[in-house]
Amino acid sequence: MDDPLVIADREYASRLITGTGGAANLAVLERALVASGTELTTVSLRRVDVDGGTGVLEVLRRLGIDPLPNTAGCRTAAEAVLTAHLAREALGTNWIKLEVIADDRTLLPDPVELLDAARTLVDDGFVVLPYTNDDPVLALRLEEVGCAAVMPLGSPIGTGLGIRNPHNIELIVARATVPVILDAGIGTASDAALAMELGCAAVLLATAVTRAADPEKMATAMRSAVHAGRLARAAGRIPQRFWAQASSPPR
């Protein structure tokens, strides 16, 4: 069960990808990152005069964690493509977590803009990891245009509602030939374990850890949950039955 997570040309021992948003401060974030065991962590791109500059990059560098820039806040393909190019320039990585959001209340991906941006960025030489709806058809389309992974949501960003349509996640996993990473909606450890039991290759979460009452402890829980879910998937669970079946001999 120690086979690495392989995305494009990289291998990771950890199957937990974290975000950095929502942490009370960098010290809290750092402890949570260490506890999570993550090797890949998202950052956002913003104007230099806001939000305390590059402190977060320093933390990631010190911990040996690869930064994964995102296009959070972008509403159109054009905006997301420009942001991805700026991220490549600022961070020196061609990896991008592609987010194209439809509206502020749901933060759901806009599938039309997302696919359009994904196609352009793949052509521009990016390793594209798209945050997508839990739509098996869209996941296939994203794979077809060359995305290095597909990252369906369990439920909307920051809701902690878990995986609302497990069957869709299973459908995506069943047909994907790239890693499926459950992204968004994780609330607690059982959600992360379920994602792995459904066959996801990894879990990406931020809020569930950074806004937990004890982020470091929750990061530890998530690390264990991802590992446990992965083991359970490989172990092959028993079929679910309607009636009881005794586990002790009859006499």
Binding site: G21, G22, V43, V48, G53, L57, A90
Partner: peptide, 10 residues
Amino acid sequence: LEVLTAVQGG
């Protein structure tokens, strides 16, 4: 001009 850098997010 826009001058951008990496911050906590995502």
